[in-house]
Amino acid sequence: MQASDAKKLAASPYLLVEDWVSIGVRLAGQVGIVIAKTFYYLLRLQIDWQESIRQAYFIGVKSFLIVSLTALFTGLAMSLQIAIQLVQFGGESAIGGVVSLALIRQIGPITAAIIVAGRVGSSIAAELTTMNVSEQIDALKVMRIDPIKFLVVPRFVGAMMMMPVLSIYAMFIGIFAGMVIALVYADVSFGVFLDSAKAMVIDQDFFVHFLKAFINAAIVIFYSCAIGLNTRGGAADVGNAVTRSVVWSMTVMFIVNYIVTDLTYEGPR
């Protein structure tokens, strides 16, 4: 696939773009169908709760360690950069607010989403494609079981339960990292940091945080499931499906993240 990309680019860059667009449109169609069917079952409350809770548990367990690590180090790096800038202006007392705002509204949700796309989305794509390649999905269909109801709905419900938990957890770790940096680098005590955070952060910010968390989780689940359920072939295709699900869900999340920011941002306060 990539070798033919090279040939196409040599022929005309336009062809390559056209290819991406047509793949993207087809994928969007497949995702649309998965979303529509999932909501069909959700609205009829045809939900296997036990399986959903199990999926939530796995999503949490799989992501716990890696979310902790990335949240910690993102928090450290971000706060370090912000602290340096603010110290220069003598704005030490604002470090807490600026760091918390950035973590709650922007960096926190997108970091958690990247990790969930890499951890959860990729393993769902791998699992479902393996099931497809080994004809397990066909076996379900022969038994008249809708793979969407059986596989996608519980994963979606599980992700919706787990995502806010992971997000809040990542946010707290990130803010803790910010407090440590502020203390070490700018001599700002935990108390001053938190006062500044309390003064700047409002309920609306948490709303944006959760909104982004839910939307990103939905993007990851629907893209990885749609790709898994539509990929056939052999072992190599399982790997390619993982790559495609990571790439597409991240790309779509970056775009949607901006749109949500634009729609919810009300300007400076």
């Binding site: 099931m131 080994s134 004809e135 397990q136 066909d138 076996a139 379900l140 022969v142 038994m143 008249r144 079981i145």
Partner: peptide, 27 residues
């Protein structure tokens, strides 16, 4: 009522033998 035996067995790996069969009886 159709039964299909797949080339590669196609059992669901996340379910036990009992659960695999129960799935077919679910209706």
């Amino acid at each position: 009522q159709i039964g299909l035996v797949f080339q590669g067995s196609a059992l669901l790996n996340s379910l036990t033998v009992r659960e695999n069969l129960a799935l077919a009886l679910r209706e």
